[in-house]
Every structure is written in C-alpha cells, then in structure tokens.
C-alpha cells in the first residue's frame, strides 16, 4: 500500500518535471502566433504578423545567414580536426597523454563567459572580432570535443582486423581509412557533426563578445531583442529554430526506421536462401 503511494507520488513528480522540461520549449510556438505585441497567452487571435516582420526586416535574414555560415564552417572544421584527434586517441601513441586529453576536453569545462572574454581580448588586436573567421575559430573549439567523443566511441567498436584485411588485400593506410574505417564510423562522424553544428548555431555567450555592427549572429540578435524589452519577433525566430531541431530529430528517427526496415527485409531474404 505504502509502496503504491510512493510510486504514485514519484510518477506525479516526474510528470511535473517532464512538463517543466518541455513547457518552455513548446510555449513559444502558440505565442509566436499571437497578434498582440504583448504576446498574450492564450493568443486572442492568431496571426503570422511576427513571421512577416522577420521577412520584412533584412537584418534578421543577414544574421541568420551569418549564423548558418559560421555553423556550417565550424562544424566542418570540427569534424576534420575532431576525427583526426579521435584516431590518435584510440589508435595512436603519443607522450603526455593525460595532459593532451585534458586540453582537448577543456572547452567542455571552461565557462563560455571566460572563453568569450579571453578570445575577445586576444582577437581585438588581431582584427578577428566581427569576422566569420573569428567566429569559426571560437565555435570550432566549442564543438570539436563533441565530434571527438562521438568518433572515439565509434572507433572503439571498429574491428581492427577489418583494417588489417584491407591492407593485406593491397590497400595502403590512407586508402584503407577512406574505404573501410570511415564508412564504418560514418554514423558517429555525422552525429558529431550535428552536435558541432547545433552548438555553433545556438551559441550566444561568446558570440555576444565577438558580435558588432559588422557581424551579428542570430542568437545575439535574439538576445538584444529580449534583453531590454520583449521583441515579439523573437518568439517567431525561436519557433522556427525549434522547428529546425525537431525536424532534424524526426529525420534521424526516420532514417533509423528505414534502416531497420531494410535490415528486416534482408534477414527475410537470408532465410529464403537457407
């Protein structure tokens, strides 16, 4: 009896926590459809007014483009550097292993405010603030540990004998990497790329330091839109941003399902053959 009571309380608590986790994510969508400039809830009447405003104001488009450019570039650089480092971590031998690993993982631990201030001070003299290059350099630091972690996990499960077999069959080390190893760790590489992309796309703290009239990423523009008073257009941007992320997850789920379906068909044909 006591146990049932405890369970019920537990489930109730979990439900409240679940709501607490989810509600802030979902509430922006209906609010962005409100026609009132005070973003009332529930919206008195629905309108796409704030979405229209996004289209009308070219600075939103500019910052979205800047963000996209930075996120794509830094995800690309992260994938290359992170995959190479993962290969070294899993396969290689190098001195000061613990210290090196600590440096590679440090961006996960150092508060972004500190990173922002440090690179701002350093970049100011180099003229790298408010430049795509500056943003890409910093966001690569923040995204690259995720690539490294994902790819390392993937690499550990790759059977070394496959690479040995490839070399025995006449492929050199580089050819073996691209034909055997890379295809096998591709899912991990892609997951790492996605992590790095989203990290950059959402990143606001270091971006606040690096942004200015010449270049402002979208999160920074959203930030200035809500810092002082609430700009309803931010609700529209947030909803769009959510849409992108949710559809990414749905897409990944769909890919997984399709693969499962193919696998199942394959096993059916196998049984026919035997």
């Amino acid at each position: 009896m006591n146990r049932i009571l405890a369970r019920t309380a537990l489930i109730l608590l979990a439900a409240i926590i679940g709501l607490y986790l989810l509600l802030p994510v979902l509430v922006v969508v209906p609010m962005s459809l409100s026609s009132s400039s005070f973003l009332t809830f529930p919206p008195k009447e629905l309108s796409l007014r704030w979405y229209q405003q996004l289209l009308d104001d070219p600075s939103w488009g500019r910052s979205a483009f800047a963000s996209l450019k930075v996120a794509l570039l830094s995800a690309t650089v992260s994938v290359i550097l992170g995959t190479l480092a993962a290969l070294a971590l899993v396969r290689g031998r190098f001195p000061f292993r613990n210290a090196v690993t600590a440096v590679l993982l440090a961006p996960l631990i150092v508060p972004y405010v500190i990173v922002g201030l440090a690179v701002y001070i350093a970049f100011l003299n180099l003229g790298l603030t408010e430049t795509t290059l500056g943003f890409v350099l910093v966001h690569t630091c923040l995204g690259v540990p995720y690539v490294m972690i994902n790819v390392s996990t993937g690499l550990v499960s790759v059977d070394r004998r496959l690479e040995m077999a490839s070399m025995n069959l006449g492929a050199g080390p580089v050819s073996t990497f691209f034909r055997i190893t890379l295809p096998l760790i591709l899912p991990s590489v892609l997951a790492g790329a996605l992590f790095a992309f989203i990290t950059s796309w959402d990143e606001v703290v270091t971006a606040i330091f690096l942004s200015g009239p010449d270049m402002t990423t979208m999160p920074v523009k959203m930030w200035s839109g809500i810092r002082v008073q609430v700009d309803p257009a931010v609700a529209a941007v947030s909803s769009l941003s959510l849409l992108v992320i949710i559809s990414t997850f749905l897409l990944m789920g769909a890919v997984k399902m399709i693969r499962k379906m193919i696998d199942r068909r394959a096993s059916l044909t196998m049984n026919e053959g035997i």
Binding site: L84, A85, R91, P107, V115, C141
Partner: peptide, 16 residues
C-alpha cells in the same frame, strides 16, 4: 596515428 592529434592540439593551444 598519434601524430594525428597534433592539428587539433595546435589549434586549441592557439585559439583556446
């Protein structure tokens, strides 16, 4: 293999 850690290590030392 171990040498492959160098690009990222140098990158992080310089940028981070």
């Amino acid at each position: 293999w171990g040498a492959l850690v160098l690009p990222l290590l140098v990158f992080l030392i310089l940028v981070f």
